[in-house]
């Protein structure tokens, strides 16, 4: 019991380290990019898309590369189901109403469903995530990023105004040091997260995939606070955009990049249950949103109830 408590505390501390390290890393990389003359639009769009998802990506990457692929796959797919059904559902309940714009649903929602369908189809037909699948996923992400940057460039009311004051900064040693420290913090933190999760799953006698799915509660903390805060403040585009952006990133990059280094084996339960649930939940969200381009409190309850049904089924029937 004592060991379990220590591991849980270590897991929570590692999660906080990873989230803060990701923050420092993204911040420093944006500054370095600006100093190197990279367009602030490209940096802004990428930072917004990557920022909240680094903990899932890091954990999935380290888990897959250190011989616990089930934790990595569970974390990526679990995060996607939780992002929509849990985070967006809870935020809709608290905010009362989350509205969205048709063009955002058309672009990001379509990409999110395309992403989940691609990975689910690949798992159905191939049964694992191979190098070729990984390349396809990464190309899809590159194309999506290109569409985002193009949309941002054509938008007159650029949301990236907040980078303006950072525009002409010189590249200082401190920035580089912070980027390195952020990266090291991410790597060490993610390794510790994976270690604690695997050990806890052995002690609790639960499969590693399920441990990964539960781990997603922690790694998605940045998304949770981003979506909840922005929904409560009425910044609806940021709320829904974060969820779609994170879900697209978790699969296309979170599973795409590690698969370039090693073939990722996937458990049948994930292929035939978790992945289809992810598709269903994404379709459910699109269905709920499409009716009036909004998510009401009742629809938030529907999403959260779906998550409870999923996780209870997963815990007790498989």
């Amino acid at each position: 019991m004592f060991e379990v408590i220590i591991l849980i505390i270590a897991l929570i501390i590692s999660l906080i380290i990873v989230i803060k390290a990701a923050d420092v890393f993204v911040d420093s990389i944006v500054e370095i990019g600006l100093a190197l003359g990279i367009s602030e639009i490209i940096l802004g769009v990428t930072a917004a898309a990557v920022g909240t998802s680094l903990p899932e990506f890091g954990s999935a990457m380290i888990a897959i590369l250190t011989g616990s692929p089930d934790v990595g796959v569970g974390c990526a797919i679990g995060a996607n189901i939780w992002n929509i059904a849990g985070i967006l559902g809870i935020s809709a309940i608290f905010a009362g109403l989350i509205t969205t714009r048709r063009q955002e649903v058309r672009r990001d929602g379509l990409m999110a469903i395309l992403t989940t369908l691609t990975i689910t189809a690949a798992l159905f037909f191939i049964g694992e995530i191979s190098f070729v699948v990984g390349v396809v996923l990464i190309i899809m992400y590159a194309l999506y990023l290109w569409v985002l940057i193009r949309a941002q460039k054509s938008s007159k009311e650029s949301e990236m105004k907040y980078y303006e004051d950072e525009k002409k900064r010189n590249l200082g040693k401190k920035t580089i040091l912070m980027a390195v420290m952020g990266l090291v913090g991410l790597a060490i933190g993610c390794r510790a997260i994976v270690y604690c999760t695997v050990e806890l799953s052995i002690m609790a006698s639960i499969p590693e995939v399920l441990a990964g799915i539960l781990l997603a509660f922690g790694t998605t903390a940045p998304e949770f606070f981003t979506v909840l805060t922005s929904a409560k403040k009425g910044l609806n585009s940021l709320a829904i955009g974060t969820v779609f952006g994170s879900n697209i990133f978790n699969i296309l990059i979170g599973l795409g990049i590690p698969s370039l280094f090693t073939v990722i084996p996937v458990e049948p339960i994930t292929i035939y249950f978790d992945a289809p649930v992810m598709v269903f939940i994404t379709l459910l969200l699109l269905f709920l949103i499409k009716r009036g381009m909004k998510l009401t409190r009742v629809e938030g309850v529907i999403l959260v109830a779906s998550y409870i049904v999923y996780i209870v089924t997963r815990l007790y029937f498989f």
Binding site: I16, I19, K20, A22, D23, V26, D27, V30, A47, A48, G51, T52, E159, K161, Y162, A221, P222, F224, F225, T226, L228, T229, S230, K233, G234, L235, L238, T242
Partner: peptide, 24 residues
Amino acid sequence: VETSAPFLTPKKVRQMIRAELRKR
């Protein structure tokens, strides 16, 4: 402009929220 955000909210998100709320 209500700038408060929970501890684990990423810095970039805080900046984005602040900018959006100022604009509004």
